[in-house]
Design a protein around this nucleic acid. Structure first.
Lengths: 204, 204
DNA sequence: TACTTAAGTCACTTAATGGTGACTTAAGTA
DNA sequence: TACTTAAGTCACCATTAAGTGACTTAAGTA
């Protein structure tokens, strides 16, 4: 059996992801992790200085968050003619779709609501940066509305987060099917409609 | 020391609430509970047949959910002249305020996102009934809009749930202060504005 | 008063967890 | 080849949890 430190580290980090995806964060412990990786748990302490350090390493190695490109829909320029309302709703819908494709991210987001640790801290930071960059992308359009843009996007973003997280384990919310596409189509339609009617373009 | 079965049962149920409020659901176990109630844990098995049965009893005994009156604002008749948009946003804002006053409910709602058990099942049922009654209250007004009302209220309701739950442990979301009134004022203002602009009254 | 029932106590088992110290064994090097 | 370093193994500790069986003790009743 080859003795390769780097490879063993990678096995451990891979095991974090597998275990998280398969069993959820409540099952994530030193013992279970070592078992999953087929490795002695003492190596987790030696290489990562314990669970928190391991989570930090994992957090830095992974990419849970959708890319900006993914939510902007590929071509920013294309959106510029559409008016701020259409742009915002399109980004929100893209975001919800991107999130729904990422069970691992969902799992960590659920964890985030319940515990603070190195991993959720990293996710929070990433989200912050991400949101800032996104706002920066639309800085000029954002000026052309009388709405409180951070508040509005916080509302819609929070709604999407909640419904996606909740859809993991519950099929309905408020009579809407949140665990499949048919319900999400209704939600998407209302996101578009609410934004379309609410963002009035100011003439400068 | 008096031997009073009913009183002991009540002590145990009270301990569920205290422990849940003080330590959160992750600390809620048979041992900790017996310790909190000052009672031998075997009684939890004898009287409630274990933890699940105890949660059921607790769930049936408590009232975590805001009353309809609380979210309707006291007088339904008063709202009737206002138009559906104003009514909906007022109910939503009242709901958010009611929820923000209930740390225990917040705790259980967080739990609901992460685990399925007797208690969260009861909370889900209550929410379902509650939502149905609420919709029934405004059945006539609800007809006077072209919006998909369940979808719209699901979005706002989900947003409120998420932000309230998240505010327990994190001060900011998307640049908004969600752990105090100043941020919530901005959110409330946008809820009102979005509803006002989105609900167009149809003439019958 | 003697007896039965049930309320409450105690001690224990089993299993899992996080964490550590001492060991063995492989790889690289003087 | 002999030696050092570090990769990986193993056995163990303390703690905590859920759950159970046997016990004691109080209350009500014949």
């Amino acid at each position: 059996m080859a003795r390769d430190k780097e490879q063993t580290k990678e096995k451990i980090i891979a095991a974090v992801e597998q275990l998280l995806a398969r069993e959820g964060f409540s099952a994530l412990g030193v013992n279970a992790l070592a078992r999953e990786a087929g490795v002695d748990k003492v190596l987790i302490y030696r290489y990562f200085d314990g669970m928190p350090g391991l989570l930090r390493s994992y957090g830095e190695s992974a990419n849970f968050w959708p890319t900006l490109n993914e939510v902007v829909g590929g071509d920013i320029e294309n959106l510029k003619g559409k008016g701020i309302g259409a742009v915002v709703s399109e980004v929100l819908v893209n975001f919800s779709r991107a999130l729904r494709k990422r069970p691992l991210t969902q799992e960590i987001m659920a964890w985030e609501l319940v515990e603070q640790n190195e991993l959720t801290a990293i996710l929070s930071e990433l989200r912050e940066e991400w949101a800032k960059k996104l706002f920066a992308t639309f800085a000029t359009e954002a000026a052309s509305t009388d709405l409180d843009l951070p508040a509005v996007t916080a509302l819609f973003g929070a709604a999407i987060n909640y419904l996606v997280i909740r859809g993991r384990s519950t099929p309905f919310f408020n009579l809407i099917e949140i665990d499949n596409d048919s319900g999400w189509q209704r939600l998407e339609a209302m996101i578009h409609l609410l934004c379309q009617r609410s963002f009035v373009s100011l003439e400068p």
